[in-house]
């Protein structure tokens, strides 16, 4: 499949923060989720992809084009016309009305579909005369999403697009994104704190922490294959001594220890006395970030594409 976004060895330094050696791609037909704590570097990655910040090292290709090449005639404008973007706030000028946002879309995009915009606004209960300054955060995000979807984009770049939405509205948005992905030539790069949304829609999950990639894995390898084992202290000691423990991460709780296991079915067969459950992306992330590796060569096992830690 063709890569719609390709990031290679990306580095970006600020006074108090550095993004180091980030490499990943977003192929057509996939939804890639970016997770990580506040200030981890997710927005910096999105900014470099969108040409809002220039990388210090590495390369970024957006639909085959360098988004940071500002020379006239480099084709970035045409590429941006194929991308829909939702940033973490409703960015339209406060004095504008919903109808003005539609007028702006008509002026900016050759493929702008006014009826689609109006239909989405109706679906989201956004009156055309409503001023942007009077919209709640959730309604503002819906307006931005309607704008991003109304010019027939091939790629969506979403930065916390479901933040501020109530659960019903989040489901509505996820349904819209699923419909968008029915066309296999489409792709989504979706940065979110709400990992349950990624569980519903993502194909790949990339975790960023303190400017570094922690893991880049298929979602199924986390949610379907990996697991969380609930161990007693004696179990941990027993596991730590075995070669089987490669890639295990332990997080000690008051009464027990949570253990990240890359293959929960294999684990359950090998240790039937230790309860092991399906793991959520949130728990997987927490164990990877806060847990300590046990076993002889702590690393992620075969499911990881480019894991680093």
């Amino acid at each position: 499949m063709e890569d719609m976004i390709r990031v290679q060895g990306l580095a970006k330094r600020y006074d108090d923060f550095a993004l180091e050696d980030v490499t990943f791609s977003v192929p057509a037909g996939t939804v890639v989720g970016l997770v990580g704590s506040n200030g981890a570097g997710k927005t910096t990655i999105l900014k470099t992809i969108l040409g809002l910040a220039t990388p210090d090292a590495g390369s970024v290709r957006l639909l085959g084009c360098d988004p940071n090449a500002h020379e006239p005639g480099n084709g970035v404008d045409k590429v941006k016309a194929r991308v829909g973007v939702v940033l973490d706030t409703c960015a339209f000028p406060m004095v504008s009305r919903v109808a003005d946002v539609g007028t702006l879309g008509r002026a900016a995009y050759s493929l702008w579909d006014e009826s689609r915009f109006e239909a989405l606004c109706d679906e989201f209960d956004l009156g055309q005369k409503k001023a942007v300054k009077d919209l709640s955060r959730g309604m503002g995000m819906k307006l931005t999403l309607a704008f991003a979807l109304s010019h027939d984009p091939e790629l969506l770049i979403l930065d916390e697009a479901t933040a501020g939405l109530d659960p019903m509205a989040r489901d509505e948005v996820l349904d819209i994104l699923r419909r968008f992905m029915e066309d296999e030539s489409h792709a989504i790069l979706f940065s979110s704190h709400i990992t349950s949304d990624l569980e519903k829609i993502a194909d790949e999950v990339i975790c960023i922490e303190a400017g570094r990639m922690i893991f880049d894995m298929p979602k199924d390898a986390i949610c379907d294959e990996a697991g969380i084992a609930h161990c007693r202290a004696a179990d941990v000691e027993r596991l730590a001594g075995s070669e089987f423990a490669d890639g295990f991460y332990a997080l000690h709780r008051a009464m027990s220890t949570d253990l990240l296991v890359p293959h929960r079915f294999d684990f359950a067969r090998a240790f039937p006395d230790i309860p092991v459950d399906r793991i959520s992306i949130e728990d997987y992330m927490a164990l990877m970030l806060k847990g300590e590796p046990i076993g002889q060569s702590p690393r992620l096992q075969d499911t990881s594409k480019g894991a680093q830690r």
């Binding site: 040409g51 404008d77 016309a81 973007v85 960015a91 339209f92 000028p93 406060m94 995009y109």
Partner: peptide, 21 residues
């Protein structure tokens, strides 16, 4: 001043408008 409100200036650059434009 509107450019700086809510990151409008940043979002505007995600539209098919170049910096020169």
């Amino acid at each position: 001043a509107y450019d700086e409100q809510n990151g409008w200036e940043r979002y505007r650059l995600t539209l098919p408008i170049s910096r020169r434009q």
